[in-house]
Design a protein around this nucleic acid. Sequence first.
DNA 1: CTTGACCTGTGAGCCGCACACAGATTTAGG
DNA 2: CCTAAATCTGTGTGCGGCTCACAGGTCAAG
Lengths: 137, 137
Amino acid sequence: MRVAQLARELAISADTIRYYTLIGLIKPKRNPANNYKEYREEERRRLQFILSARKLGFTLNDIKEIIREASKGKMACPLVRQILEKRLQETEQSFNQQSALRKHMKKAMKDWKNKPNQEPNGHEICHLIEGFSFANE
Amino acid sequence: MRVAQLARELAISADTIRYYTLIGLIKPKRNPANNYKEYREEERRRLQFILSARKLGFTLNDIKEIIREASKGKMACPLVRQILEKRLQETEQSFNQQSALRKHMKKAMKDWKNKPNQEPNGHEICHLIEGFSFANE
DNA sequence: CTTGACCTGTGAGCCGCACACAGATTTAGG
DNA sequence: CCTAAATCTGTGTGCGGCTCACAGGTCAAG
């Protein structure tokens, strides 16, 4: 199976598969007839593993390390648990940041409804932004 | 005032100020004595504008465009309102994605508490990930 | 006058792809 | 069987918003 069809079946882009191949996460054999990469059952399974791991917040580097560990015949689970914990912490952080950003933006939308546009006055760029208060209410 | 001190006062990194300068958001004059960049009141105000706008989700390109508009003597407010709306939509999207990711990760933490590590078995990489269900309960 | 802190510009690295390009291959239609 | 169009290939570049590394110039304190 070639890259485009596999991409269709997994509902991802061919470029993504190519990229994973480029960085060594997948190692398809070549078809000697045309030198195209041939994706088989093994590659499909590995790709599905990658996609699941991505959905759980693992980075591509994490995944690389996990695969390396597993292919040395070792048990990857402890590593997986440890990485998940770390990534969860980071996700909590950026989630809270996102949440704050969202709050500010919504407040701006609301506050600005009652404010007029204003002609430029020399030292302000946009009074909406410059006059915005990030404080709670 | 030189870059490092301004950075300290605004609690951001000197590299960030340098970067904003590089992409043309700030245009400090040079000190002829040593050719260092000189940041004055105008640059400080502009920098504060940039920081406020960033906190409201505007991208650096947005900010560039807004400044360009304002420096043409035009009223930037309508543009600002329009961009905010767009960025808010995007933020909602990525917020929801983050939220889903966080949920999955927390579920994994919980589910995996009861699952043992498992020796590699040839065709699985990590049964924790491979056996994880993304469904709601 | 030296030491060490600070400054400079330039360039590369991060992450996870998306997109552009030019040339090779495959497929469908006549 | 032939051609045209679709699809494929690898390589390289770009995105955002910085951060860090490097090699060298400048400056303040002792």
